[in-house]
């Protein structure tokens, strides 16, 4: 039978965790509760009263075609940005792990983008990708009208995806590299002696052993791209949700409806829905994707 050490000091334990609980309550449960309440009322922005309207805010949101196009935009953004950031980081990590020339330098070099604030990244992207004045403006000289994310929604989406991925590659890279380096050398050496080339070793040994890290990064990247401050900052600077709502991600729509449009109740209902959506998504990942993960 297993032996367990038990500390019997109930009240002290509660006292010790109280500060943390208070913080969580004040900064998470309280605002969430307030948002939940607002979602069922029509709130006057300057205070002075509200009235209970039941589910009306939710039905209004769910019946709104533009809300659903925001849902689609959010999904496209999240999956595309996550795929791009993970795939690119994996390639970089595999190469750095192979100890090619200069890999020590690259190891710290690739993390930098993550340290730059999202609005700063977006400003840089705006200067580079502006269709008339940016560095890429030359493509429009070859072929007028080829690149214009301020008019073309698909291009605007590509631009925000690229920007988000650029920033998150660094984060993914460092985790993947650490995971690669914790794979026992003996495994790699043994397979090399058996005649497996680098590609074979990658497919049969490295990738399967990376899956726990990969899964962790998948959850983090998806959540971050759905509700994270980076997606908000990038959209705010690069497109403001436009053109014609093509990049109006759910998290940005909440901000612009609530704070710019002063529709606090509608925004509250949207944030509740978004919260549920992210919870469902994370649940799906743990329920079905995690089954394919090998924890050694």
């Amino acid at each position: 039978m297993e032996k367990r050490a038990v500390f019997r000091a109930g009240s002290l334990a509660y006292l010790l965790i109280l500060p943390q609980l208070l913080l969580v309550f004040v900064f998470f449960y309280w605002p969430t509760g307030a948002a939940l309440y607002w979602a069922f009322t029509l709130e006057m922005p300057w205070g002075g009263g509200n009235q209970w309207v039941g589910l009306e805010n939710f039905t209004a949101v769910l019946k709104d075609g533009k809300y659903w196009s925001s849902v689609v935009a959010s999904c496209v953004f999240a999956f595309a940005a996550t795929a791009l950031a993970l795939a690119q980081a994996l390639v970089l990590a595999l190469f750095v792990d192979r100890q090619l020339r200069g890999s020590r330098g690259f190891r710290s070099f690739y993390v930098w983008p993550y340290a730059v604030a999202a609005p700063a990244v977006s400003l840089a992207f705006r200067f580079i990708f502006a269709p008339e004045t940016g560095l890429v403006a030359f493509v429009n000289q070859w072929w007028p009208g080829l690149w214009n994310p301020s008019i073309n929604g698909a291009q605007a989406m590509a631009l925000v995806v690229l920007c988000f991925a650029w920033k998150w590659i660094g984060y993914n890279f460092i985790f993947l590299l650490a995971a690669l380096q914790s794979i026992p050398r003996a495994l790699m050496e043994a397979s090399a002696m058996d005649g497996a080339g680098p590609l074979r070793r990658m497919l049969d040994i490295q990738l399967p052993l990376l899956t726990p890290t990969f899964f962790f990064l998948l959850v983090i990247n998806l959540t971050e791209s759905f509700v994270g401050p980076d997606s908000f900052g990038i959209v705010d600077i690069l497109t403001e949700g436009g053109p014609a709502n093509a990049t109006n991600l759910l998290v940005y729509k909440i901000y612009s409806d609530g704070f710019k449009g002063l529709d606090y109740s509608g925004a509250a209902a949207q944030s509740i829905i978004l919260m549920l959506l992210v919870m469902v998504l994370t649940f799906i990942q743990f329920r079905w994707v995690e089954r394919r993960v090998h924890y050694k």
Binding site: G242, P243, A244, K260, G261, L262
Partner: peptide, 21 residues
Amino acid sequence: GGFMQIRKEVTDALQGIFAGK
């Protein structure tokens, strides 16, 4: 009321129009 939202609706419409959508 909600004039900022109305302005945004019209701006969205104009963006759609000039994108040819």
